[in-house]
């Protein structure tokens, strides 16, 4: 079993009295590209919120490097674990370089506002995400795909070994979705960061993840390498969708093909 810096034990996740998940245990393998999938309202985004310290579990604990994440200061967590929420807001009139620079916040102080290191890391992060030539542009003026790359650059500038992404491809068209996921895969491979993402598209998840967590009704149905766990039975169990699973002709990863006339409940031949 590989080591894990981030995980949760016996989590009960709830909003006020509405319990979303009970006795949930997950581990994010180090240096993995972990993707959490599941049908709507299965608790996948809630799990990500708990892992990123946004939601305090009603029971159990999220552990970051062996310590209860809620006993650590927000700032200490932000130096180890970065988060790109589902719909961050770009302030009116902010420039690209300025937004990326905000990723340095957890490393700055009242009298350490802009070190040469900050400057170098912001430039590197913009280069890594291919937005270095957009530095002076306003974020409002960018296309959806460009904007998402800028947000990724900001998260990278935070320089955390762990990076959590909540549905990073939502609201993007298919070309930009692939562009962002390719970028994530590259960051994972080249920079050795651990990525955790919530994705809607099962085929994207199967193609890009090195570790997949499939959830339904607040519990983990299966976890592991996509090639090992993505089967027609699993998809049926998790999503209630009859389908065939074939090899992706491009990558050889599992490709889920929904059955024709899925509602009839039989797989057409």
């Amino acid at each position: 079993m590989s080591t894990s810096r981030l995980g949760g034990n016996g989590l009960r996740l709830a909003y006020d009295r509405r319990v979303v998940a009970e006795d949930l245990t997950v581990a994010v393998p180090d240096r993995s590209f972990t993707v959490i999938i599941g049908p709507n309202a299965c608790g996948k985004s809630t799990l990500l919120r708990a892992l990123s310290r946004l939601l305090k579990p009603a029971a159990g604990a999220v552990l970051l490097d062996g310590a209860d994440i809620h006993r650590l200061s927000a700032r200490a967590v932000a130096r180890t674990l970065g988060l790109l929420p589902q719909s961050p807001i770009a302030p009116d009139g902010i420039g690209v370089a300025e937004l990326v620079a905000r990723g340095r916040y957890p490393h700055q102080g009242l009298l350490r506002q802009w070190s040469p290191e900050d400057e170098r890391i912001v430039a590197e992060s913009m280069a890594a995400t291919g937005v270095d030539d957009l530095g002076d542009r306003l974020v409002d003026e960018l296309s959806g795909g460009q904007r998402q790359r800028v947000w990724l650059a900001m998260a990278l500038a935070q320089q955390t070994p762990l990076l959590l992404l909540d549905e990073p491809t939502t609201y993007l068209d298919i070309a930009h979705q692939i562009e962002v996921l390719d970028l994530c895969a590259r960051l994972h491979e080249e920079q050795g960061r651990t990525l955790v993402a919530v994705l809607h598209d099962l085929n994207h998840a199967a193609r890009y993840a090195t570790h997949l967590i499939a959830m339904r009704g607040g519990r983990v149905v299966a976890a592991g390498e996509p090639r090992r766990i993505v089967t027609a039975e699993l998809v049926e169990e998790v999503f209630g969708l009859p389908c065939r699973v074939i090899d992706d002709p491009e990558t050889g990863t599992p490709l889920v093909v929904p059955a024709a006339r899925a509602r009839a409940g039989t797989v057409a031949r």
């Binding site: 200061s73 932000a78 929420p85 807001i89 935070q158």
Partner: peptide, 23 residues
């Protein structure tokens, strides 16, 4: 005034600000 930098981070939304280490 000491809160101003943290306040500036909340312009990005509460979740993003928390992710950047703002309580």
């Amino acid at each position: 005034l000491a809160c101003a930098p943290a306040l500036r981070m909340t312009e990005l939304g509460d979740d993003a600000a928390s992710g950047l280490g703002v309580s």
